[in-house]
């Protein structure tokens, strides 16, 4: 390894400071006693207490979690099939249309996808009376559609890194294609599916724009609620909520990372 030059090192320091100082400031100010979020009024944890009492927030959080789990599970199911198809089915008819359909939601500006889906739901409601009410169902559909791409990409890259002769060997030993998928392919892509699920879940919890479009009255996810509050400016209880989310996700990611590292060491050693 060559040593990095002084310029590169200072860019690294600057870059990481840029990424983390804003998050740190939120964490620090969440312990600010003052109602005015920008004036330091001494250390306090009172905003965390008020957070727990806020039923609006807890019910929005619950809705978000429900949508996240459902959408991530559906996206993992569809995305895994799509990833397997892209990596293993060779050239099937309309492959390029399929590839485009799978991958485009990943890069499509959210406002377009959101508007398009809302118009679909409105049209469907006129035509067949479904969906009667927009909320959990419609948001879940939107998030699933969007997250399929991410799962598919993760599964596909895992499969292309995998020796195809593993599946051939299983077939050679008498496994029929469906059995081979159950016996060999699925266990080997399970970590990729788990990673895809986690990513889909996070994307769903994080989404504001799609949910704002396709949600109806009363169906407020956590990001929608936060957005309606922060539109008006910085508030201390949102600082506290943000801190909880930051800590929760950081710990989760760190755990996932160390597990992945240990698994990586196991399989390479």
């Amino acid at each position: 390894m060559t040593r990095n030059s002084r310029f590169v090192i200072s860019m690294l320091v600057f870059g990481y400071a840029f990424l983390y100082i804003p998050l740190l400031s939120v964490v620090v100010y969440s312990f600010n006693d003052s109602r005015l979020a920008t004036v330091w009024g001494g250390f306090s944890t009172r905003w965390y207490g008020e957070l727990l009492k806020n039923e609006q927030i807890t019910s929005a959080l619950f809705l978000s979690l429900k949508i996240g789990v459902t959408a991530a599970t559906l996206a993992t199911l569809f995305g895994t099939i799509a990833g397997i198809a892209l990596a293993r089915f060779g050239r099937f008819r309309s492959r390029s249309l399929f590839t485009g359909l799978v991958l485009s939601p990943m890069v499509m500006p959210e406002v377009i996808t959101g508007l398009a889906l809302l118009l679909l739901f409105v049209s469907l409601q006129q035509l067949i009376g479904w969906p009667g009410q927009r909320g959990f169902g419609t948001i879940t559909i939107a998030h699933t559609t969007f997250a399929i791409a991410y799962v598919a990409v993760i599964v596909q890259s895992r499969l292309s890194a995998m020796d195809e002769s593993l599946e051939e060997a299983a077939m050679d030993l008498g496994g029929r294609p469906f059995r081979v998928m159950i016996d060999i392919t699925l266990p080997l892509i399970a970590p990729a599916m788990l990673a895809g699920w986690l990513l889909a879940f996070t994307l769903s919890l994080d989404d504001l724009v799609l949910a704002s479009f396709v949600s109806g009255p009363g169906g407020s996810t956590l990001p929608m609620l936060i957005f309606s509050k922060v539109k008006l400016g910085v508030t201390p209880d949102i600082n506290a909520l943000a801190t909880l989310i930051i800590v929760f996700i950081s710990v989760g990611v760190l755990i996932a990372w160390s597990i992945a590292r240990r698994m990586g060491k196991d399989s390479s050693g």
Partner: peptide, 27 residues
């Protein structure tokens, strides 16, 4: 391939990484 009374030893060996030696042979 799964119906031919022919078996193959692959160049990469294609040992199933998630199974023990025994399970590989018994597959």
């Amino acid at each position: 391939p799964y119906e031919r009374p022919v078996n193959m030893m692959f160049q990469s060996y294609a040992i199933f990484p998630h199974m023990t030696v025994e399970k590989n042979i018994a597959y």
